[in-house]
Simulated assay, not measured.
Amino acid sequence: MTTPPFPPVRDADLAVLREQLGRPARGVIGIAARCVCGNPTVVATSPRLPDGSPFPTFYYLTHPAATAAMSTLEADHVMRELSEELADDEVAAAYQGAHEAYLRDRAVYGEPEEIAGISAGGMPTRVKCLHALAGHALAAGPGVNPIGDRALQLSSWSPDRCVCAQPGSAG
């Protein structure tokens, strides 16, 4: 878990990100979470990309196995189940708090008017993108984003086990 401000991004991190994403990473300002082997798992991305466009997804999930696991959950319609959890007042309040924490973290690096008040993943009222919510949960640590935490719990991937060297994974 790493919160703003982030240590400088290393060239080795950018090389791994290029491999993970299949393209150069844009607007990277830090590595917000790492695999147990040290490879990037979540990057922090500038709220305004180098080309000037606003980018609301501050915490961007890059680890191939983690992104595949979130895609599987989405394909299995787990988002519907997680959305239903927002009917619980306690979960809804925690999700609102996650939204506010996300915005505070991103604000350290700027607040483009075009994305003011917009976090990611559907926060604070719906579940839209498990990749973004899991990325936030990994970056912020357990207990900050209840829906991101639940997605990680339900997934086949674990941040406690390295799969970077396995075929089909970056690393």
Results as ranks from 00 to 15, higher is better:
Trp157Ser: 08
His77Ile: 01
Thr2Asn: 12
Leu82Tyr: 01
Ser119Leu: 07
Asn145Glu: 11
Ala165Ile: 12
Asp160Ala: 13
Tyr60Met: 03
Glu100Pro: 02
Val9Tyr: 00
Pro124Asp: 10
Ala66Asp: 03
His136Val: 03
Leu21Asn: 06
Thr62Val: 14
Pro112Leu: 05
Thr67Cys: 12
Ala12Gln: 15
Pro112Glu: 07
Cys37Ile: 09
Gly27Arg: 00
Ala92His: 08
Thr62His: 01
Gly135Gln: 08
Ile31Ser: 03
Leu17Ser: 06
Thr2Ser: 13
Ala66Gly: 05
Ser169Gln: 15
His136Cys: 04
Ala137Val: 10
Ser169Asn: 15
Arg126His: 12
Pro50Asn: 12
His136Ile: 04
Pro159Arg: 09
Glu85Val: 11
Asp160Lys: 13
Thr41Met: 14
Pro142Ser: 12
Ala170Gln: 08
Arg150His: 03
Met70Gly: 03
Ala165Thr: 15
Arg126Met: 14
Thr41Ala: 15
Val28His: 00
Ala101Tyr: 09
Val43Asp: 09
Val16Ser: 10
Ala151Val: 06
Asp105Val: 00
Phe55Gly: 02
Leu103Thr: 01
Arg48Gly: 03
Ala87Pro: 01
Pro5Asp: 10
Pro54Asn: 07
Pro159Glu: 11
Val28Phe: 00
Ala165Gln: 14
Gly38His: 09
Val43Thr: 13
Pro64Thr: 05
Arg104Leu: 13
Pro112Tyr: 04
Gly148Gln: 05
Cys35Ser: 11
Gly171Ile: 07
Leu86Gly: 05
Val42Ser: 04
Ala134His: 02
Phe6Gly: 00
Gly27Met: 03
Cys129Gly: 08
Pro146Asp: 08
Ile115Met: 09
Ala65Leu: 11
Ile147Tyr: 00
Leu73Glu: 02
Glu111Ile: 03
His99Ala: 10
Ser46Arg: 04
Ala132His: 00
Ile118Tyr: 02
Ala69Gln: 05
Arg104Ser: 11
Ala101Arg: 14
Glu114Ala: 14
